[in-house]
């Protein structure tokens, strides 16, 4: 029952939504202006400047949360966007996301997009995430690399992610196809209800729990992941996955 209520319609006014934005560029630009893109970053000095430069061309409001990096992440980000927050201590990606979302809301964001700093996401995928939100049919959209198109993903990573999806489907009771994709979009109302308390990587599952608990209408949108040697090196290993799982379960148990 909660499941049915959680899922937002895939159809709007009887016509199927396409992944691209409508031709109405005025509206598109307006949405882009009221969108804040939150980029959590920890020691991403090597890649972040290019990632941000690509982002700000379309989305002027980019909030970087430097999660206590020890390299040049802060300066590199500062050169591209005025909104660079700094965690004095490394607190984890979940904590950084929540900080960025809080800041975006305080700046008056109408839409909040979360975007990884390592260059694995594509800026061109963001409009298809925002479109259902702007149409008022969804509160949250989640990028899914398994929905529809396929990106060239190493087999070991694919298996690991499939297992993560299965686990997340069981714990969150949401029919999702990709568990740990950092590309998401929230309406202001949905972002205001976000209260990530799991500071580290286990926040990805917690976000789904929040969606279910708050009965937010969500939808998955196909996105592509750019697997470069850099972004793969930044990814999680099977051992990390086990640790994340343990932290998540304890986090749920002792809330």
């Amino acid at each position: 029952m909660g499941r049915a209520r959680n899922r937002c319609e895939h159809e709007v006014d009887g016509k199927r939504l396409t992944p691209s934005m409508p031709a109405d560029t005025g509206k598109e630009a307006q949405i882009a202006r009221s969108t804040y893109v939150v980029v959590p970053a920890f020691n991403e000095g090597a890649a972040i400047r290019d990632v941000l430069a690509e982002l700000v061309r379309v989305y002027p409001n980019v909030v970087v949360v430097d999660d206590g990096s020890t390299d040049g992440t802060f300066d590199a980000a500062r050169a591209v966007t005025p909104y660079v927050l700094r965690h004095a201590l490394n607190r984890g990606q979940g904590a950084a996301l929540q900080t960025g979302v809080d800041f975006a809301l305080r700046r008056g964001a109408e839409y909040v997009v979360t975007f990884d700093a390592d260059g694995q996401h594509r800026v061109e995928d963001i409009p298809s995430l925002l479109e259902p939100l702007a149409g008022g049919t969804c509160d949250v959209t989640l990028g899914s690399r398994f929905l529809g198109m396929q990106s060239q993903m190493p087999l070991a990573r694919k298996l690991l992610l499939r297992m993560a999806v299965l686990f997340t489907r069981i714990t969150s009771r949401l029919p999702i196809t990709d568990a740990h994709n950092g590309l998401r979009a929230f309406t202001r109302a949905a972002a205001e209800r976000l209260d990530i308390s799991m500071d580290r990587m286990e926040h990805a599952s917690e976000v789904l729990d929040i969606i279910r608990r708050r009965r937010l209408r969500f939808r998955e949108v196909p996105v592509q992941i750019r697997y470069t040697s850099y972004s793969l090196g930044k990814g999680q290993s099977a051992r990390d996955a086990l640790r994340i799982l343990l932290h998540y379960l304890i986090g749920r148990a002792v809330r």
Binding site: P82, Y83, V84, L85, R86, H87, T99, F103, R106, R107
Partner: peptide, 16 residues
């Protein structure tokens, strides 16, 4: 974490 967030927000606000 809450403390670190608070400081980051204050700094960010002032910088913005």
């Amino acid at each position: 974490t809450l403390l670190v967030r608070h400081v980051a927000m204050l700094e960010g606000e002032l910088a913005a």
